[in-house]
């Protein structure tokens, strides 16, 4: 393909001032589209991990009680834990230690607060097998007699919001990429039309000595694809440099601030390279097809 793209043209397309900026504009568009796609993929992956992490979990919040009729707090907590552990499909029931609850509240209460004296609720986290969905009603039925007023949360509302947000952002990113693709097509149409106008006389000579429309269209097609290829290479290089900078910035952050993706090296590499390569290939295809169709349509109106 590269040899074909580099062949001599009967039309002096290499000397067109009108197309000189095309590679740079394509480079910019490819870069923006690839970055948009990359951001969408990272966000989508993040949202998926978040929702996946909590989709098999249910949190039971047990408010502290002074009512002796329902037993001691610790007794209620253990009663709930044991009862939930016997539910079908449940793989683990974990009681969050009071100290852990206190630690998590520390940022809101301040370092000087004595949280041990506060009537804090206790949390019981229940996990079910990956192939099962938590049965919230059943859990509630088990918990209510032991700990009246307990709150059972399967994170459904939060999860739905995250999924909605992620879906909207990915849709937005997809639309942005489609718009960039359409703009690229329009750009190629204008560049090719200007080339057709500049070389009208030469094209007529080619026609008159027996050139098929396809012969002429192929020259525009190859030339435009070559320019887009050059622009795409520039974009891929800048994209790679940007990713290295981003990675360095991310690695410099406190790991506890970062979400867990749980991806291997191969998946990270795919995430880093695929958006750029996909946009690059898309741009080449758009340039190729658009240039060809534009020239064919214009030539059909000539003698």
């Amino acid at each position: 393909m590269f040899r074909r793209l580099g062949r001599r043209y009967d039309l002096p397309l290499d000397r067109d001032g009108a197309q000189r900026l095309l590679p740079w504009i394509v480079a910019l568009m490819t870069y923006i589209a690839a970055m948009t796609l990359l951001a969408a993929l990272v966000l989508g992956s993040l949202a998926w991990r978040w929702t996946d992490n909590v989709s098999g979990a249910v949190t039971v919040l047990l408010p502290p009680s002074t009512d002796q009729a329902v037993g001691s707090n610790e007794g209620r907590i253990l009663g709930v834990r044991d009862s939930l552990a016997t539910l079908p499909g449940v793989t683990a029931v974990e009681v969050l230690p009071a100290a852990e609850v206190a630690k998590r509240l520390q940022p809101w209460l301040g370092a000087g607060a004595s949280v041990e004296d506060l009537p804090l609720p206790r949390l019981v986290v229940l996990r079910v097998a990956p192939d099962r969905r938590p049965d919230v009603a059943q859990i509630r039925n088990r918990v209510e007699p032991i700990a009246p007023g307990a709150v059972v949360d399967d994170h459904g509302v939060w999860r739905a919001e995250i999924v909605k947000l992620a879906t909207r952002m990915m849709t937005g990113a997809g639309l942005a990429v489609v718009l960039i693709a359409m703009t690229a097509a329009v750009l190629v149409i204008f560049a090719v039309r200007s080339g057709l106008a500049i070389h009208r006389e030469t094209i007529e000579v080619l026609h008159l000595i027996g050139a098929h429309d396809d012969y002429i269209a192929r020259q525009f097609q190859n030339h435009t694809t070559k320019l887009v290829f050059q622009g795409g290479l520039v974009a891929l290089f800048v994209l790679g440099v940007s990713e290295v900078f981003l990675l360095q910035a991310v690695l410099g952050l406190d790991p506890s601030l970062l979400p867990r993706f749980g991806m291997g090296t191969a998946q990270w590499l795919a995430l880093a390279f695929l958006p750029g390569l996909a946009v690059f290939a898309g741009m080449l295809a758009i340039a190729n097809v658009t240039a060809r169709l534009t020239v064919r349509r214009a030539l059909a109106r000539m003698v």
Binding site: D10, P12, E201, V205, H207, I209, G210, A211, A300
Partner: peptide, 21 residues
């Protein structure tokens, strides 16, 4: 449009203004 080039190839033309590229 497919047939015209085939016929044109049977015609040699010397243009008034040469029309060399």
């Amino acid at each position: 449009r497919l047939e015209a080039p085939v016929v044109r190839r049977r015609i040699g033309v010397v243009f008034q203004d040469f029309r060399l590229l």
